[in-house]
Amino acid sequence: MDDDDYWNTSETKESAFSFDDVLSPQEILAIGKKACSGQSEDSVFNSSNINSTRRDLVPLASLVSPKALELIVLAQSGNDLKDAMPEQHITVAVTLRRLVLGRSCSLHVHRSMKSKTELLDGAIELGDGNAILAIVCFLLQTLNKKLVHELLSSRPLALSHYVGYLHSEGKIAELTDLLTMLDRSSEAAMFQFEHMVRCHGDDVEALLRKSGNLQKNHFTQPHVDGHYIKMLTDYCKLLEWQKCADKKELRNKSSLRCLSYCCESHWHEGAGNIMSPLTLCQRQQITPLQYDWVVLNVHANANKWDIVESLFTKKNWFGRTTVSTHIPIETLLSRLAELKASEHIMATCVDKIQSNEERIRLAHKYKIHSVIAESAGKQKDRSGLFGMT
């Protein structure tokens, strides 16, 4: 039998070109989890043996729910009914299948409350975000808004999708109404605040005006978190300070960025002056730890080590220099090393540590020879002296 006769026989055609063996969803999800036939675990083609910067593939199960995948597999198998059917015969299941597969369908054939609720619950069960959003929007068109909000309040997944949709589309008024009706006033207020800052950028005057309105209309609602109220109050104070400072580079910047500017340009201003670092700290309730950290970085980066030393060290009753700072000592040492501080300053910091072992460990870590020598001398440890590098 020649080649043409072989391939034209009916038996060969059936065995070689059978498309009836459609993979199940479980088999599709398993693709990539096991080696192909003829490929051993130690094969050079095994992905674990290839030096590549390509990240691992995302599991299919994390992208599509098993039930949605079943619909897709059914459609690809050819067993799915694609023909148009009379409107009165279109069931919830048919509509959901068409939504998931991206086919055209009319949601308006579902007129009863029962049918609409089943649509929403079916989409949630399938876990298809697009279907959920399409149905929620349909419900808002055909039902009372309050009724839709009640439906969403008992369906967290649908509510989450809808909140995300409103936020991404910038529909803040609708989002605020929804969250307020659901007694989530704190979230509504924060979405309004975020939207205000995004829209008005560095326009301090507009931000001040809008912040006042926001405070009256949203941050006075019941159940708004007290932390959020304080945050907005502090933000308004900062905007007022920025308005007085009248520096373009400081508009709508954080308190710490403003403090950094004051330390750089107005370090010697006395307390009470609007640009004094101490005045800003008091006004914005900047913590001592934050103040110390900003001052350290600003003056060390400017090579003003005399200011750093005068601020972080002091003399005790016995005339010995000690460190006075709110920054944890190991964090301080690490940062000083990065900023290329002198050995004298580093040694002063290490001397503050009570534990002798810890002091020696850090002295070796940061190569503070004076501390190593002093500790070795006290312990009469000659090997410690010779171990300095």
Rank of each mutant, 00 (worst) to 15 (best):
W7S: 11
T9C: 08
T9G: 12
D20H: 12
I28Y: 06
L29P: 04
G32M: 10
N46H: 15
N51Q: 13
D56T: 13
V58Q: 14
P59M: 08
S62V: 11
L63V: 12
P66K: 08
A68N: 13
L69N: 05
L69G: 07
I72M: 15
N79K: 13
K82P: 06
K82L: 11
A84K: 10
M85G: 10
E87Q: 12
Q88I: 09
H89E: 15
T91Q: 10
L96G: 03
S104M: 09
S106C: 07
H108F: 12
H108A: 14
H110K: 06
H110C: 06
K114F: 12
K114P: 03
E118K: 15
E118H: 14
L120Q: 00
L126H: 10
L126D: 04
D128T: 06
D128V: 05
L133W: 08
A134N: 07
K146S: 13
E150A: 10
R155F: 00
P156W: 01
V163R: 06
E169K: 11
G170I: 00
E174Q: 14
T176C: 12
S186A: 09
A188Q: 04
F191R: 01
E205S: 04
K210R: 06
S211K: 00
G212M: 01
N213Y: 08
T220Q: 15
P222T: 03
H227D: 04
T233M: 05
C236W: 04
W241S: 01
Q242V: 04
A245C: 01
A245M: 00
D246R: 03
E249N: 11
E249Q: 13
L250A: 01
L259C: 00
H266V: 00
H266N: 02
E269V: 06
A271I: 11
G272H: 02
M275I: 02
S276E: 03
P277E: 01
P277I: 00
P277W: 01
Q290K: 12
Y291K: 00
K304D: 07
W305K: 09
E309L: 04
L311T: 01
K314C: 02
N316W: 09
F318V: 12
T322E: 14
A337S: 15
E338A: 05
V350N: 07
V350I: 15
I353N: 08
Q354V: 10
S355F: 06
N356I: 12
A363Q: 09
K365G: 04
S375A: 14
S375F: 07
K378A: 09
Q379Y: 08
D381M: 05
L385K: 06
G387Q: 09
T389D: 13
